[in-house]
Amino acid sequence: MEPLTPPIPILPIFFSMFLLIYLVAYYIVFRSWSPKYRPEASSCFISLAHGTPAVFLAIFAILKQSPHGFASPNTSSQSLVLDFSIAYFLMDLLHYLIFFPSDVLFIGHHLATLFVLFTCRYMVLHGAFAMLILLILAEITSACQNLWTLANVRRADVPSAAKLYRLLSPPFYTLYSVVRGFAGPLFVYKMVVFYSSGAADNVIPRWILVSWMIIIAVAISVSILWVSNLWLELYRERTAKVDKKVR
């Protein structure tokens, strides 16, 4: 049977890795960008370094666990993935506290996400199966979203960025809508049914379960609202272009 905890404390190593990636992005990769855009671009860069690798790591950790379920103990592989994501969110939280301290929504999102990941990893030592499924659903759009964000940042002054932004918008919005609007809520519903039955009360305190469900439900609701606004904006842009051609 796979050990339940990694043999070495890997979290500081992962955090140092994301810090280094951020610094490389800020001072080398985006050194020619305006200081106004470099912090956001660097944040996207570490998100790229986290998102897609986290999906594959999570899939591997889930497949390696047998049997698995919502109340299963965390395995070593799952704990490693949780540490990987905790380190990323800590680094990105530091980024927001330094450069965008007034962005309460993102700071609150990161703190809430860290609470869920940290309690799963270090307090209850159970439930990583559910957390990693949610991580996959959250990060499967990461690569597309970060490229879209970078293009959005520069579309006003770089024609190729504007073209990429227009090209990526419809498929990104569609994929995000499917994942966050349908797959995510369906999986969360299954979690609620299981945890509300009391089947995990002997390994995960009820107050932590309730906290998880509230945080996850709010996060998905905000995501749905966000992508809905993007669809409306795209519709307005396309409608405005059609009206302009007609005139």
Results as ranks from 00 to 15, higher is better:
108 G>M: 02
87 A>H: 13
87 A>C: 04
101 P>H: 08
222 V>A: 10
71 A>M: 05
67 P>G: 03
144 C>H: 06
75 T>H: 03
75 T>M: 13
105 L>R: 06
34 S>P: 03
113 T>G: 13
215 I>P: 08
130 A>K: 02
166 R>L: 12
161 A>Q: 06
82 L>P: 00
83 D>L: 10
48 L>H: 12
234 L>I: 05
64 K>A: 14
136 I>W: 00
139 E>R: 00
174 T>F: 11
32 S>T: 11
66 S>D: 07
89 F>N: 02
175 L>H: 08
163 K>D: 07
105 L>Q: 14
182 F>W: 07
30 F>E: 01
46 I>C: 08
129 F>T: 05
1 M>I: 11
164 L>W: 12
139 E>Y: 06
55 V>T: 01
99 F>L: 09
179 V>T: 14
22 Y>P: 08
21 I>S: 02
48 L>D: 12
116 V>I: 11
226 W>V: 09
52 T>Y: 15
227 V>T: 05
68 H>F: 14
58 A>W: 01
167 L>S: 13
219 A>E: 10
192 V>G: 02
11 L>E: 03
24 V>C: 06
35 P>A: 00
130 A>N: 06
228 S>L: 09
177 S>F: 10
94 L>Q: 06
200 A>I: 13
159 P>D: 05
167 L>F: 14
55 V>E: 02
143 A>W: 11
171 P>D: 12
165 Y>V: 00
110 H>Q: 10
55 V>C: 05
142 S>V: 02
138 A>W: 09
13 I>S: 07
10 I>V: 12
14 F>D: 06
87 A>I: 12
130 A>Q: 11
66 S>M: 01
33 W>R: 04
